[in-house]
């Protein structure tokens, strides 16, 4: 059993984007704050902190989840991918290029979360319909683009994947 009293810090070891991090945090530390403030990975954005906006979405053991609705201690020993992990070896992820080409971002605040959800989505859907893309995107708020460019970008990458 893992146990920690109020204000007592626990050592959390996690692998993020392939790199091992070990930080001491209180149990109440949200995973989103852990990533940004303890690990310095500020690509993960924080908007609403109650699960609605999707800006903080990261992948935990492959699944796209809200990092504002998890405590860092709960991620102990997990494999996490954040937006920084999408272009690890210097080249951009196809979704990143497609968002840029299709005007799928303006201010970019929502983009990291959308990228993480879309990456999981494309692994699970070989030939998605527009409706399926929109349903997945319902978990993300974008106040700039009107979503059209984002849907196009995801559809574009899906098509490229299929044609390959």
């Amino acid at each position: 059993m893992i146990q920690a009293a109020k204000h007592e810090k626990v050592l959390v070891r996690v692998r993020i984007n392939g790199k091992l991090y070990a930080e001491e945090v209180e149990p109440r530390r949200l995973l989103s704050d852990f990533l940004r403030e303890d690990c310095g990975l500020t690509g993960t954005h924080v908007g609403c902190e109650h699960g609605v906006c999707g800006a903080c979405t990261v992948r935990v053991n492959g699944a796209a989840v809200r990092s504002c609705l998890m405590f860092a201690v709960q991620a102990a020993d997990a494999e996490i991918t954040t937006v920084e992990g999408l272009s690890l070896h210097g080249s951009r992820h196809p979704l990143q290029d497609a968002l840029s080409e299709c005007h799928g971002l303006q201010c970019g605040f929502c983009t990291p979360g959308i990228l993480m959800s879309a990456a999981e989505f494309l692994e699970e859907h070989q030939d998605p319909t527009t409706e399926q893309i929109e349903e997945m995107l319902s978990g993300h708020l974008c106040r700039c683009t009107g979503y059209k460019g984002i849907v196009e970008a995801i559809a574009k990458v899906a098509k490229e994947q299929k044609d390959r």
């Binding site: 146990q3 149990p27 109440r28 201690v73």
Partner: peptide
């Protein structure tokens, strides 16, 4: 918006 402190337990069995 941060949760107030709490005592945390992560048991590994139903019995615990």
């Amino acid at each position: 918006m941060k949760p107030a402190s709490f005592n945390y337990y992560r048991p590994s069995t139903l019995e615990e």
